[in-house]
Design a protein around this nucleic acid. Sequence first.
DNA 1: GAGCTGACATGTT
DNA 2: CAACATGCCAGCT
Length: 83
Amino acid sequence: MTEFSKTVYNMVKDIRCGQTMTYAEVARAVGKPRAYRAVGNALNKNHDPSVPCQRVVRSDGHIGGYNRGAGLKEKLLREEDAI
DNA sequence: GAGCTGACATGTT
DNA sequence: CAACATGCCAGCT
């Protein structure tokens, strides 16, 4: 756990229901616009359900990945009308 | 014009 | 040192 990852989790938690953010946006929010990869890794290793990592998507509009299956991620986003 | 792949850059685990 | 849930660009189909 680093300050960076903690900040990332905090940002993701702060995302409103139905609102999504890209890895690049989160990375920029924490002050490291080039840490988009680190953001994905941090979320990937994080297994805390308190962190709605499904709200974090690619800048291309693609879903990306999810700890419990990318398909589930897309499903969750549809359920909350975020996509 | 749209979609895919490969290569390079960046930061954490 | 190697891997990775990305991003941007170049080249191909």
